[in-house]
Write a protein that binds this DNA or RNA. Structure first.
Lengths: 158, 158
DNA sequence: ACTGAAATAGCGTAGCA
DNA sequence: TGCTACGCTATTTCAGT
């Protein structure tokens, strides 16, 4: 028997979809919207959590309200002749609070970094003291976001 | 009297930080961790929500578990001679479920799109039928993510 | 998957340091 | 501001069917 099931039905997807939009919805109300009893929905949800479909719950905070007005994407090219560049870069990125996402990509550069900072001054500091300070960083290209057209949309589950 | 206050203290930040990590924590436990009474924490949280610091709550879903194994970033260049390209593109992007984020950027291109799809086949369909089908799209550059080094880190509130 | 009972948590109010 | 304390309501959890 498998440790974690992977098959989920329409009802499970509906649960995930609603929960993604409102993580604090009461189980009774969730059950009403689904059309099942609270107990059944609770059991399904517990299974979905156990099997890793739901990783957790979180408050969605407004970055601008928190003074994080500038969103930037940074393309990073590494000098592959330097030893352990990838490991070192990956580790440094984990500890930098400004970095919200970092991905290794296939294409014209090596890493794509998404970061949020207060303003351009803060960004220059972050770039100089964090990104460029790392050994093996050969080149960076910064793209400042002028307008967030679509921000953190829910995953298409249904 | 102001409609929405903007000043938040250390305690507020602690509340936001904990809530960002666990959106379903009980108010009593949150109060314990903060070192205040549940009533006070409840009032603070209510204010933080009213003033727009907290936009909502949501379940964090595992995209890979849901069959969305491929994360891509697409740089999009628009043909500025076509009328209303920006408006049309922005509207189309809102309705596309594959698009998780879309930002207008300053620099070498116009929009940066973050999308999640099942695989390369699904991506080719999305690119051809959604992105390239839009009028005014002059060029796209696709960067497929090989490894998600850091994924959706919490905002640095504290 | 449902029902029903017991345990918990949340919410509003009042009064006080 | 924050705290305690109360009662009330809603919700979760755990039986058994």
């Amino acid at each position: 028997m498998a440790v974690g099931m992977t098959e989920i039905d329409k009802t499970d997807r509906k649960i995930l979809s609603i929960l993604q939009g409102d993580g604090r919805i009461a189980n009774v109300e969730l059950a009403e919207r689904i059309g099942l009893s609270p107990t059944s929905v609770g059991e399904r949800l517990k299974r979905l959590q156990r099997d890793g479909f739901v990783e957790g719950y979180g408050a969605r905070l407004n970055p601008h309200r928190l003074g994080l007005g500038l969103l930037v994407f940074v393309e990073v090219l590494l000098d592959k002749t330097t030893p352990d560049v990838f490991e070192k870069f990956a580790r440094a990125v984990q500890t930098a609070p400004e970095v919200l996402e970092c991905h290794m990509v296939a294409g014209g550069f090596d890493y794509l970094v998404k970061a949020r900072v207060a303003n351009m001054t803060a960004y220059r500091r972050f770039l100089g003291e964090t990104l460029l300070a790392l050994p093996g960083v050969r080149e960076t290209r910064t793209y400042a976001v002028m307008e967030e057209v679509k921000r953190d949309a829910p995953l298409p589950v249904g």
